[in-house]
Nucleic acid binder design. Structure first.
Length: 419
DNA sequence: TCTCCGATTAGAC
DNA sequence: CTAACGGTCTAATCGGAGA
């Protein structure tokens, strides 16, 4: 039986999240900015039509945006994560096999269900009715094709938001794939597009028809799988069990550069706290901590981007242990006289909590209990209610966020009536 | 010469 | 007035160090 894999993708997700609570902005150009109000990371269709590009720096766009009455929001990740959970939860009602691929999209295995075309429309309708979130649905026999089907659903109004490749005959499918640029294929990025174009491969159908042995030799396993998937041969399984992350990163560009060691220490303390919390959430411990800092990469001044890797004798998820280590690291890499624009920490060598080798003298009970208590207090009374103390009173490094919306769904004070 | 491992590259969103 | 350009994650590959 041909597999029917659906890829459900929210339309302009961050913008749509903001609009759920600002229905007055329907039909208006709206953009959401990255952290630090740096650049555009989500655009409404109206903003796209005005020629606002993905990744465009806000400072370059600002006056144009004001002139054309583009509404702008800073990123509100608490809101987007919460909306994502709701969307995923509703979608899980349509199939027992769901892979949450990213914050705004998931795969559902619909194989064997009857009237799959109508299921696509039902999914779209329910997410709209229950959550006011617009989504598009692509259906096909492999994940890579499902992604392309979704692309078609997004681009062509005639599809009314749902497109099923399995409902086409060979000739129709070939015609559709001949009209899609090869760069739209999942896994074909900027560089591969240039290489493929150089070989005369411009549309998806040409990639599908390419010689597998040659493609494998030239580009490797991933490309081979991509070509096979385009032919309808499912090489990528639906991963319905979320794997623990192998690496956890917490980093930020600063709203303003900092020069003092204590400001860097303060920032790093904050980053370690965030990363260690995520580590405990997935019940892991880290065996390696890397700390880095860097000057402004867009400035013409002399660049400095030190980093240091610090192994942990006993892998840990204890915020205080990790903060102490990270601070020692910052002190080692810090050089006076530079204006630091960004810093971050990376937790690596991650393993499952409770399986690592410890020796006779290692006593973990006291501190781990403390972390549990800290996490449950913060869960109950709000993130950062209890935290490891920083080194400075004032966060000189805090990011810019001049257009942030309320925490509509995650905080009582964010409800419009309570303002 | 081989293997391991950290660094780099490429891609996704 | 000026300066202002994101964050997390994975897999594959490269290249140097040490066995």
């Amino acid at each position: 039986m041909t597999r029917s894999i659906a890829l459900i993708d929210c339309n302009n997700f961050y913008v749509s999240c903001e609009r759920v609570f600002r229905p007055d902005m329907a039909g208006w150009p709206v953009v959401v900015l990255s952290n630090n109000d740096g650049c555009v990371i989500s655009r409404s269709n109206e903003a796209k039509a005005l020629g606002v590009h993905m990744g465009e720096p806000w400072f370059k766009l600002r006056s144009f945006a004001e002139q054309h009455h583009v509404e702008v929001f800073s990123s509100n990740y608490a809101l987007y994560a919460d909306m994502s959970n709701r969307v995923m939860s509703v979608l899980s009602g349509f199939s027992p096999l769901q892979e949450i691929y990213s914050i705004d999209e998931c795969f559902l295995d619909l194989t064997g269900m009857h009237d799959i075309g109508n299921t696509g429309f039902a999914i779209r309708q329910r997410i709209w009715d229950w959550l006011s979130m617009p989504v598009c649905v692509g259906i096909a026999s492999s994940k890579t094709l499902a992604k392309l089907a979704n692309h078609v659903a997004k681009k062509h109004p005639k599809s009314r938001g749902v497109f099923d490749f399995n409902a086409l005959n060979d000739k129709q499918l070939a015609s559709v794939l001949s009209h899609i640029d090869v760069r739209e294929v999942w896994g074909i990025g900027r560089n591969l597009t240039v290489s493929l174009n150089g070989m005369g491969i411009d549309c998806v159908q040409q990639l599908k028809d390419a010689d597998i042995t040659m493609m494998r030799r030239k580009f490797g396993v991933v490309m081979e799988k991509t070509v096979r998937e385009l032919r309808g041969e499912a090489c990528l399984d639906l991963d319905d069990i979320a794997q623990p992350r192998q690496q956890i990163v917490s980093s930020r560009s600063f709203g303003n550069t900092v020069t003092a060691l204590e400001d860097l220490e303060d920032a790093v303390t904050h980053f370690v706290s965030t990363a260690a919390y995520k580590l405990r959430e997935q019940q892991s411990v880290a065996g390696m901590l890397m700390v880095y800092a860097r000057t402004d990469r867009f400035s013409h001044k002399k660049q400095y981007m030190p980093s240091i890797s610090l192994p942990l004798v006993y892998p840990s998820a204890n915020t205080m242990t990790l903060v102490a280590l990270a601070k020692a690291g910052v002190q080692q890499i810090y050089q006076a006289g530079y204006a630091y624009k960004k810093a971050g920490v990376i937790l690596g060598d991650i393993s499952a909590q409770g399986i690592t080798q410890k020796d006779l003298f290692f006593d973990h009970t006291a501190t781990d209990k403390l972390m549990e208590t800290l996490d449950s207090l913060n869960m109950r009374y709000g993130r950062n209610m209890i935290r490891v103390s920083g080194t400075t009173k004032e966060r000189k490094w805090a990011m810019r966020q001049e257009h942030k919306s309320q925490d509509y769904t995650t905080s009582w004070s964010g409800l419009p009536e309570c303002r």
